[in-house]
């Protein structure tokens, strides 16, 4: 053990202020740099965004106070219509949120399929996982080539069954689903690895006992295995929700919001309003970000509450 190497330092007779308050002061010193960084780059900017969202600002000149006008315009309060781009983005976010959750059962399914001990299974597990390691930008490129009407492999495959070429990313009614499918690929891999590690920790005695009682197949999975996979499911749920609401890279790379703005989500629309070539509308963008933040806050509160319950159970 390494503490054996610590030199023997008996406390000197005269103890300074630091020595006397060591236990109280040390944690503050150790926390200071992390808190400083985190406050400057994360905590304070959240408050600033709220503040900016109450202004009209091009990012350079003076910001003009407009109160809640940005929100009223977004949500269509008063005698104006809801911002149509905002409406599309919002519903697309809901689609992302719901469909992205498919990654959890899909990941569980693949994990169950791979939870064997045949030769070479470790390689298979890594290869199934590895879409998650690739950057979303590359995943986006890979899938946009996969979907190409002429050169894409997808159309070649469905052509074999006599269906005819579809231009998924060019069709406003399909493009969002095409992007979500691309996003599900790495996300499923992530959920799979969570469940594979979870399955490793499943208590074999319980499984054997259940088997003796005649449980098998679905009933075994539902009543014996899934309850033991609760921690894995919780993390899978957290990362999938966060991932769905953060979707930006894939949309930016695959369609850039198009066709006809049909694939925008809030995070993308916010970026577009604040920094696009159409001019910088920081106030309006910040208002969109605040709405996205509030949407996410519900989930964050739930996650924190669950973690807090665990903490209370612990030491």
């Amino acid at each position: 053990m390494s503490h054996a190497t610590v030199p023997d330092t008996h406390p000197p007779a005269q103890r300074g202020w630091y020595k006397r308050n060591e236990i109280a002061v040390t944690p503050l010193l150790f926390l200071a740099p992390a808190i400083l960084f985190f406050a400057v780059y994360v905590i304070i900017p959240i408050a600033q965004s709220f503040w900016i969202s109450l202004h009209e600002w091009d990012g350079l000149g003076e910001a003009t106070w407009v109160g809640t006008a940005n929100y009223e315009r977004l949500l269509g309060i008063g005698d104006q219509n809801m911002d149509r781009k905002f409406e599309t983005s919002f519903w697309n976010n809901i689609k992302w949120l719901v469909l992205y959750l498919l990654a959890i059962p899909a990941g569980l399914f693949i994990a169950l399929f791979l939870n064997q001990t045949v030769r070479g299974i470790r390689i298979y597990k890594s290869l199934f996982f590895f879409p998650f390691v690739i950057s979303q930008v590359v995943v986006g490129l890979v899938f946009s080539w996969f979907y190409l009407p002429r050169e894409g492999l997808l159309n070649a495959l469905i052509g074999l069954f006599g269906f005819g070429p579809v231009n998924i990313l060019g069709d406003p009614s399909m493009a969002t689903y095409g992007i979500i499918a691309a996003g599900l690929w790495p996300q499923t891999a992530y959920c799979m690895i969570l469940y594979l590690t979870g399955l490793n920790a499943v208590d074999p005695e319980q499984v054997e006992a259940a088997r003796l009682d005649g449980a098998k197949g679905w009933r075994m999975l539902w009543y014996v295995i899934l309850p033991q996979l609760r921690p894995a499911t919780f993390i899978a749920f957290v990362v999938t929700i966060i991932g769905a609401l953060r979707s930006f890279d894939l949309i930016s790379v695959m369609t850039n919001g198009g066709p006809f703005g049909s694939t925008r989500v809030l995070s993308f629309y916010m970026f577009e309003e604040s920094l696009s070539e159409f001019g910088f509308r920081m106030g309006y963008g910040a208002a969109i970000a605040v709405i996205l933040f509030i949407l996410m806050l519900g989930f964050i509160a739930y996650f924190l509450w669950s973690m807090y319950q665990d903490e209370k159970g612990g030491r």
Binding site: P45, M282, V290, M307, Y308
Partner: peptide, 22 residues
């Protein structure tokens, strides 16, 4: 501790304008 966790979950967009400015 919970501040660190919560901050880790926020959408990037809420940080974008102020961080870019800073």
């Amino acid at each position: 501790f919970f501040m660190f966790i919560a901050g880790n979950f926020v959408p990037f967009q809420i940080l974008m304008v102020p961080v870019r400015d800073l």
